[in-house]
Write a protein that binds this DNA or RNA. Structure first.
Length: 572
DNA sequence: GCCGTTTTCGGCCCGACTGTTTTCAGTCG
């Protein structure tokens, strides 16, 4: 049973308990445990076997529950609860506006067990006839069933971010808005977002809201007020814009940036000190005085905490670290001095070497690597040894014309199914830099994939493992392998692990970055650009690395060229 | 059910909105 399945099972248990009217804190315990387990990068059973107290939010009771799940695929508690509420009824909770209480009542009082039956009950008036449910509630549920059926799920950040930026730019230019920021999961650089939350300040709110609802990106308007408006954008993403008094901008931004778990923990921390945090300020409960914050920094400072960057607000250990000033100084986009993974027309890229060099110079980089595919990747016009050498010659010629940047000869070499490399060792040794990547045989067992990666990592010619898990955001899961073993090997051999910045990859992902760094490995952050404009994707890689706690000194391509060259020449 | 440099018992985040009520439960973020 995978961690995601364990997490889903705990989440379902929480929902079932809530339908029975169970103690809300017991419910919250299951929800917290589910979130903690979804974040783990090692099998939950492995961790519990090593350290039964090793997962925050999982105590002895839920640990037993998980062990039972792993051993039998279900639990006595779940079976018992399902006798009262079948799984299909729990699925009704996915409809907005249908919570545990309503789902329980439509089942018990109307016999509704699925979406179609709920829809029928909403249409024929039985839903509205329930106590404390009226015609408006029933109509709302009906509308939300339609929306739920159309909905495609969460939006990748690679799509949401440019969209958000275009809207922010339009509002800043066309209306009288003094401050405007995107909050929510977008600001935290989560790999997918559920909606867009904007926070702003304006002394002419009508101009801002009127412009928002009339933007070409807007499909339909849900609400149009002076302090809050909601719209559905083309493509189905919802955007909420809140405007506040200047003195509360910081509090509102903090509130809507979240995450939910971070805010819960922050407020618990505040309560223990006699303080109450909300989007309207910080109240001293003894004196009832409220402090206002026009920026976020002030809130954390007033609580005696180091400022917590949005990417770290995950409800993990960030508050505990901030108390003792122990948060890492995270890498910034401006720390990067080069991009070490890109393609050209020599393989499957669509720009020449020279065009890519000019783009890298325009980015302010002082070094870069040209890393086209090896022959094994036929679909990408991978290079034979002969073409690789001819390309190296062209790189040297281009390099002579651009002394302001150091251009490394490199290749993204296929790691074959058995872990051998797609170029012989003596050819690899001719290159300045070698990226080893998996592009095939992705359905190996974890043992096979681990051995494959270890063999590549142990090869002294391999410097970087490119997109190590091969996962695709919202698509394939990627290769399963023994992460502790592979990350430890990377640390031992000095092989870097890539954070591929392409928003459809983000691989390593945030939680893997953290695990790799804790194992002592270093990373690179590269765009895998196939055209000049792809180099702009670097911010997504940096955001992901920051979520994993990466500092500049953890990232090879944030260091000076001399350090980079010394690293590349190790063991040679 | 979890958790503790205030606690091994007694707490557990905060507020808005909606629709239904006539004081509040449910849902959401």
């Amino acid at each position: 049973m995978l961690n995601v399945q364990v997490a889903a099972a705990l989440e379902e248990t929480a929902n079932l308990l809530e339908m029975t009217g169970e103690n809300v804190f017991r419910i919250r315990a299951y929800q917290r445990a589910a979130e903690a387990i979804a974040d783990l990068r090692e099998p939950v059973g492995t961790i519990l076997a090593r350290d039964p107290k090793g997962i925050p939010g999982v105590g002895s009771g839920i640990a037993d529950h998980i062990r039972e799940l792993l051993a039998t695929g279900t639990t006595k508690l779940t079976v018992e609860l399902h006798q009262r509420f079948p799984p299909e009824v729990v699925a009704l909770l996915q409809v907005p506006g249908v919570g545990p209480k309503l789902a329980a009542r439509v089942y018990e009082e109307l016999g509704v067990t699925n979406l179609d039956m709920l829809e029928a009950a909403a249409i024929d008036g039985r839903l509205a006839s329930l106590p404390r449910v009226g015609t408006k509630s029933a109509a709302n549920v009906l509308k939300n069933i339609e929306g739920f059926r159309r909905r495609s799920g969460r939006t990748p950040i690679g799509i949401a971010r440019p969209l958000a930026e275009s809207i922010i730019a339009a509002l800043l230019e066309g209306s009288n808005v003094q401050r405007l920021a995107a909050a929510g999961s977008l600001r935290r650089f989560q790999e997918t977002v559920g909606d867009l939350d904007f926070v702003g300040v304006s002394d002419e709110p009508k101009s801002v809201m009127d412009l928002l609802v009339s933007l070409p990106q807007v499909d339909r308007v849900l609400g149009h007020g002076l302090t809050k408006s909601s719209v559905i954008l083309l493509g189905g993403l919802q955007l909420d814009l809140r405007l506040v008094e200047p003195r509360d901008f910081g509090s509102l931004l903090q509130h809507f940036t979240g995450s939910a778990q971070h805010n819960i923990q922050l407020r618990e921390y505040a309560v223990a000190r006699g303080l109450k945090v909300s989007e309207y300020g910080l109240e001293d409960m003894a004196t009832s005085t409220v402090r206002h914050f026009d920026d976020e920094e002030g809130i954390y400072a007033a609580l005696g905490l180091q400022f917590i960057p949005p990417e770290l607000r995950q409800g993990r250990d960030e508050i505990r670290l901030a108390v003792r000033n122990g948060l890492p100084k995270l890498i910034e986009l401006s720390d990067l001095k080069g991009d070490l993974h890109m393609h050209t027309t020599w393989s499957d890229g669509s720009a020449s070497i020279e065009a890519m060099v000019q783009a890298a110079i325009a980015k302010g980089y002082t070094y870069m690597a040209i890393s086209d595919h090896s022959a094994g990747l036929g679909v990408a016009r991978g290079l034979t040894v002969e073409r690789l050498r001819a390309q190296a010659q062209e790189i040297r010629e281009v390099a002579a014309r651009y002394p302001e940047i150091r251009i490394l000869t490199a290749s993204e070499v296929d790691i074959r199914a058995d872990g051998s490399m797609d170029f012989p060792d003596d050819v690899l040794a001719e290159l300045d830099l070698v990226i080893g990547s998996i592009h095939s045989a992705m359905n190996q067992t974890a043992d096979e994939a681990t051995a494959r990666l270890l063999k590549a990592i142990e090869n002294p010619n391999v410097d970087i493992i490119g997109h190590p898990t091969t996962r695709i955001v919202g698509g394939r899961e990627g290769v399963e392998f023994d992460r502790p073993e592979v990350f430890a090997a990377a640390a031992r051999t000095g092989t870097a692990l890539e954070v591929n910045a392409n928003p459809s990859r983000l691989d390593l992902r945030d939680t893997d970055v953290r695990m790799a760094l804790e194992a002592g490995a270093r990373i690179t952050i590269d765009t895998d650009a196939h055209v000049q404009g792809n180099m702009d994707l670097m911010e997504f890689g940096v955001g992901t690395a920051r979520r994993g706690g990466a500092r500049a000194q953890d990232v090879w391509n944030a260091g000076p060229i001399d350090d980079l060259l010394a690293w590349l020449q190790r063991d040679r």
